[in-house]
């Protein structure tokens, strides 16, 4: 078997009245992958997903799913399922009817339908709630009904548009694990939209980071974290995000380069031995460690991670050190520069 991608977008563009939607989006997704579309609000994640689903038709480019060119095909012909941000459950139908809606439409025999329903409800932990209406369910249960409806048909591709954004933080963590496990158990391909980078980083095999309708970087979470291709990715990924330092503040770098540095690579240095002298702006105690925010005229986002409780008074001057190997170098356009070994 050749390694032909299961889903492939080729140079997709979509504009609204000449205004940018998405531009030149190309993406290959292998079968069984969990792909997260990540980016700030309005960057075109939902648009990309809706193009993939067939709810919008692209102005240019090609969409191929499972070897078939579906660029102009209707949503129903693409053999995929979708979980909407709002869940889009039918309010007058019971849980069972909601889940079986697509099976009924596709004229699946009754016995098979009930069999599949039972399994989908078991997988999503909804057994016993068959006869409830969506209005009588909690947010988390509704979310799982939407999930059950998406998996019941057994489609190999499932699209999800911020399915967890209506849930509280604790529930979000739990459902996140459920979704990931479900995806692995069923072996389906998932394209998952989120603006929450921890969600993307923890769940996805491949993260697609977008900005202003364009893809910035495609890669594994490790690649995005360890080798951001530009300063946007560097600043977007990671908590706290990467600090950026202007080149002229450090000896041995060009003036117009930007240096990236992760918090975990910064250490406190003894007076006189540090590479930068900064001022403490705030301290955030998180239990196992303390984030110390630092200010420097030529740097943004400098944060020092100190183990345990390590409060410094703000205004206090500290010196920091770091190793050259841990630095990321970006050129004047913000692009990553491969460093000489």
């Amino acid at each position: 078997m050749t390694a032909q991608p299961f889903v492939s977008l080729e140079g997709i563009g979509k504009r609204w009245n000449g205004k940018l939607g998405v531009e030149d989006v190309s993406l290959d997704i292998p079968e069984g992958a969990f792909v997260a579309l990540l980016g700030p609000s309005g960057c075109g994640k939902s648009t990309t997903l809706r193009l993939l689903a067939g709810l919008e038709i692209p102005d240019e480019g090609k969409i191929i799913i499972d070897g078939r060119d579906v660029t102009t095909r209707a949503a129903s012909e693409r053999n995929l399922s979708m979980v909407f941000q709002s869940y889009a459950l039918f309010p007058h139908l019971s849980v069972a009817e909601n889940v079986m809606f697509g099976l009924k439409v596709r004229r699946v025999p009754r016995a098979e339908r009930l069999e599949k329903l039972k399994r989908a409800l078991e997988i999503t932990g909804l057994t016993g709630l068959e006869d409830r209406k969506p209005g009588e369910l909690s947010g988390g249960q509704r979310q799982r009904v939407a999930l059950a409806r998406a998996i019941v048909a057994g489609q190999r591709l499932c699209l999800m548009d911020e399915p967890l954004s209506n849930l509280d933080a604790k529930l979000r963590n739990a459902v996140r694990k459920d979704i990931k496990k479900l995806q692995q158990d069923l072996g389906i391909t998932v394209v998952y939209v989120t603006h929450d980078q921890t969600e993307a980083m923890s769940m996805a095999d491949i993260v697609v980071l977008m900005k202003d309708g364009r893809i910035q970087q495609i890669g594994t979470p490790q690649e995005l974290y360890n080798a951001p291709v530009n300063t946007f990715v560097a600043e977007f990924v990671g908590a706290p995000p990467m600090a950026l330092i202007r080149g002229h503040a450090l000896a041995g770098f060009d003036n117009d380069t930007t240096i990236g540095l992760r918090a975990e690579h910064i250490t406190l240095a003894e007076t006189g031995k540090g590479r930068l002298i900064c001022e403490v702006t705030e301290c955030e105690f998180l239990g196992a460690e303390t984030f110390i925010g630092l200010a420097h005229d030529d740097a943004t986002g400098l944060t020092l991670k100190a183990p345990g409780m390590a409060l410094h008074p703000s205004g206090h001057t500290v010196e920091i050190g770091f190793a050259d190997d841990d630095l990321h170098v970006f050129d004047s356009g913000g692009k990553r520069v491969a460093r000489a070994p």
Binding site: A53, L55, S76, M82, G102, V105
Partner: peptide, 10 residues
């Protein structure tokens, strides 16, 4: 709801 129905093939 229309979009969900569309995707389900209705």
């Amino acid at each position: 709801l229309k979009e969900a129905a569309d995707i389900e093939g209705a």
